[in-house]
């Protein structure tokens, strides 16, 4: 019963960039993800949704190669360049490092002297300018707004000129306008030439309506792939309940699915009664 976009589109893109084949990963006391089959093709934009603790980050790290598979395999296309943008809460914000230093650190040091060459400086400035961070090079990373902080780490990933960009919860803890900005930047990067870079993007998110529903391909994930397809294929009560473990209602608005949590009415009723008494 899996609507499988990856299989139907598999013919259009013969070679996947990243392919998980019956992938399982284990941490000490038990498997975190199990039997995952997932393929990401050039130019795709994939959102992985699931509750916290569902193994989304583990899946990303397995695709990056920083966690070993206990069963099955992850295959990356030969010579594939993958860049990772970590969740902001994992960053050490007290570390003495400026915006320019963060972006520059991921460039391989070509000469014995660590300072950026003039062409590197130009590249860094260009990436910062493009992400709306121009003029902030000397700022400490703590002295930025949440959206700017997210974009600094996006800049560090982009300067590696990746084929695939992997982001863990890029919109966690940032406000609605900023989320919109980040999404537009990602859409630009994902769009093919001449306007965009045609970078394949994989991200995880909690945000079903604000983010997931806008993406071309969604994967509902809870320890394994529950559903895989377009938002209207995947955002359905049956899959959502299996993913999140709670009943959800789905409305259609302007051709876009909107997910509602059930039980909200009862909660509101309880709280309003409490206010009245």
């Amino acid at each position: 019963m899996k609507p499988s976009a990856s299989n139907s589109s598999g013919n259009a893109f013969p070679a996947p960039l990243i392919a998980c084949d019956h992938l399982s990963c284990t941490y000490g006391n038990g498997s975190v993800i199990e039997g995952v089959d997932l393929q990401v093709h050039p130019g795709e934009f994939v959102g992985i949704v699931g509750p916290s603790g569902s193994g989304k980050t583990t899946l990303l790290k397995a695709m990056l190669g920083s966690i070993q598979a206990s069963h099955g395999s992850v295959t990356r296309a030969a010579g594939l360049s993958v860049a990772y943008v970590p969740q902001l809460e994992t960053v050490d914000w007290n570390f003495p490092v400026t915006v320019g230093e963060v972006v520059g650190m991921s460039r391989p040091q070509k000469s014995w002297w660590p300072g950026s060459s003039s062409s590197e400086r130009e590249e860094i400035e260009e990436v910062l300018e493009r992400l709306g961070l121009g003029g902030l090079e000397q700022r400490h990373i703590r002295e930025l707004s949440g959206g700017q902080q997210q974009r600094v780490f996006l800049a560090r990933a982009l300067i590696q000129k990746p084929d695939v960009l992997i982001l863990d919860e890029p919109t966690a803890g940032i406000d609605v306008t900023t989320r919109h900005e980040i999404l537009h930047v990602l859409a630009d990067l994902n769009e093919g030439p001449p306007q965009g870079d045609g970078i394949a993007i994989i991200l995880t998110t909690h945000d079903l309506n604000g983010l997931a529903a806008h993406l071309p391909r969604l994967v509902c994930f809870n320890r394994t792939v529950i559903a895989d397809g377009t938002p209207s294929e995947v955002l359905q009560p049956y899959f959502l309940e299996r993913t999140f473990g709670a009943p959800m209602e789905v409305l259609q608005h302007g051709g876009m699915p909107i997910v509602l949590e059930q039980g909200g009415d009862q909660l509101r009723l309880r709280l309003s009664r409490k206010g009245a008494s």
Binding site: V82, A83, F95, Q109
Partner: peptide, 22 residues
Amino acid sequence: VVTLYRKLLFATFDPEVAGVSG
């Protein structure tokens, strides 16, 4: 420290992403 500057900085600031970045 000079010749390995960027790697040392990356590995100290953000070991996980540094590892992924080679």
